[in-house]
């Protein structure tokens, strides 16, 4: 069956608010076990899309299957198979980290061990602290812990590292990779292109409620085939040439077997490609 291949299937998804389309007909397939990133500027429809997939919002039209079920109708058994990391939450401030994890574990049929989850997100030292005393980054890690306590097959991460310092961010990435290695499908929305590039198997770029490009981070928007810029230096100074065939050019330039000083070959970065896709660069 198809749902064995794809964790998420979306066809022609639309969401209108008072006649304005926040999501204007998108198609997405997310395979099981993959890390999929949704990129896009604010207002592109990322959060709306994710909230429809999570069962938090109703759609105006379109087909949606998440783990084989329609999230608009799915019940508790389906919710036990997904994990949601909220973007902003300040709930349960008076509970301790360990208390809240133990409590939430009780909702699920096959939860992870709360102590193991505390360790996974690196909150050992804070396990006995009230949640209100956590820093912003610690709070987000607790949100992740609550998202994975039920051993979800599919994890939704909505801008998970906003406000993290670089070191915490790296640790967080390692955690996500570890979850993916255990077979968890991960749907991530993010503002950070380096995050998508580091983590995602595939990305889709949303703009104006539509998918404007989809692919691996390396090939997005024809990035792998785009013109390369070859730079080198010789006695006359710095040379720069744009070409579709950089290998051939370099071969020609070094035909005498000479070494080319300061040789670099660059393709457009993911950021260049992204900005072009969302129309921020002419």
């Amino acid at each position: 069956m198809i749902e064995n291949v794809n964790a998420v299937e979306v066809h022609g998804l639309r969401k209108d608010y008072a006649g304005v389309s926040a999501v204007a007909g998108i198609d997405l397939d997310i395979r099981r076990g993959e890390i999929f990133a949704l990129l896009g500027p604010n207002g592109a429809g990322k959060t709306t899309t994710v909230e429809i997939l999570e069962g938090h919002r109703r759609r105006t039209s379109g087909e949606v299957r998440v783990l084989g079920e329609d999230p608009g109708r799915a019940g508790g058994a389906w919710r036990a198979r997904i994990g949601i990391v909220l973007q902003t939450a300040s709930d349960a401030a008076e509970l301790t980290v360990a208390e809240s994890l133990r409590h939430f574990a009780g909702y699920y049929p096959h939860p992870r061990d709360p102590g193991e989850v505390v360790h996974l997100v690196g909150l050992e030292e804070k396990a006995g602290s009230r949640i209100r005393t956590l820093s912003g980054g610690q709070r987000r890690r607790l949100d992740v812990a609550l998202g994975i306590i039920g051993r979800p097959e599919l994890l939704f991460l909505d801008e998970p590292t906003t406000g993290f310092d670089p070191e915490v961010r790296r640790r967080f990435w390692a955690l996500i990779e570890r979850l993916a290695a255990d077979g968890t499908t991960i749907l991530l929305t993010t503002h950070y292109l380096d995050e998508a590039e580091a983590l995602a198997d595939r990305v889709a770029v949303l703009a104006g409620g539509r998918v404007v490009a989809e692919g691996t981070p390396a090939t997005l928007g024809g990035r792998a085939e785009a013109e390369a810029v070859v730079r080198w230096t010789d006695a006359e100074g710095v040379h720069e040439r744009r070409t579709q065939r950089p290998t051939t050019l370099v071969n020609e330039l070094s035909a005498g077997g000479g070494e080319l000083a300061g040789l670099t070959i660059t393709r457009p970065s993911l950021e260049d490609t992204y900005l072009e896709l969302i129309g921020e660069r002419s």
């Binding site: 069962g55 939450a89 300040s90 709930d91």
Partner: peptide
């Protein structure tokens, strides 16, 4: 308050009846 601070939203995403 539960609606405002995210308690209900979090619970809605779990199998809690």
């Amino acid at each position: 308050l539960d609606r405002e601070d995210g308690t209900l939203k979090r619970l809605r995403g779990t199998p809690m009846p």
